[in-house]
Amino acid sequence: MSPAKKPPPSQELIKGIWRENPVLVQLLGLCPALAVTNSVANSLAMSGAVLFVLLGSSLLVSSIKRIVPTDVRISTYILIIATFVTIADMILEASVPAVHKELGAFVALIVVNCIILGRQEAFASKNSVGRSLLDAVGMSIGFTLTMVLMGTVREVLGNGTFLGYSVLGPNYEPWVIMILPPGGFLTLGVILLVFSWVKRRSAARDKVASSIGGPAVQEAA
């Protein structure tokens, strides 16, 4: 972005939720989005950990951006992120051992989650502390929404439950494949297809509205 004209601070918060949604638009952080969304509880725990790490690293990176030499910035960011991940890992292990066990190695793998390093390099290292925190919160909300959406679809279809409570009744035959690995790929695939279909349709509608008489492209979808 150009440093001359900055969007209002509220935009930094909102953009992560839809327009620059980390998972659906930027396709970052797919590894946790697919691996731990087999239940809503796991999705929430993972999102919480990501929120914590992203907030912590954005805060630290944006406050020390002036004293970090450009050549070693990436290594510095990774060190900072790894520190916060270690803390998050320990907190989860101490407070919710069952969930921690189920998330397994994927908490540690937040270190290499592209969302976090990406935000540090693209945003926190160039913006003020306040804006970076807003950006981090926005991105985390976007990430959380996607995770919960996937967790809900997979848990409801694959297990007939939501957060452990039965929603589809005792006669529902669970669609087990949804909570197994292929279900993750399929769910995210379908979500992305729907997402791009909606986007294309609204783009086509705008086009038709602006140039009446041109070849109608609305039927393209």
């Binding site: 396709l27 790929f185 399929l186 995210l188 695939g189 379908v190 979500i191 992305l192 297809l193 997402f195 791009s196 279909w197 294309r200 393209a220 979808a221």
Partner: peptide, 11 residues
């Protein structure tokens, strides 16, 4: 058209 992105690859 709308499927020419990552969605299809994920499926």
């Amino acid at each position: 058209d709308f499927a020419q992105n990552m969605g299809l690859v994920l499926i």
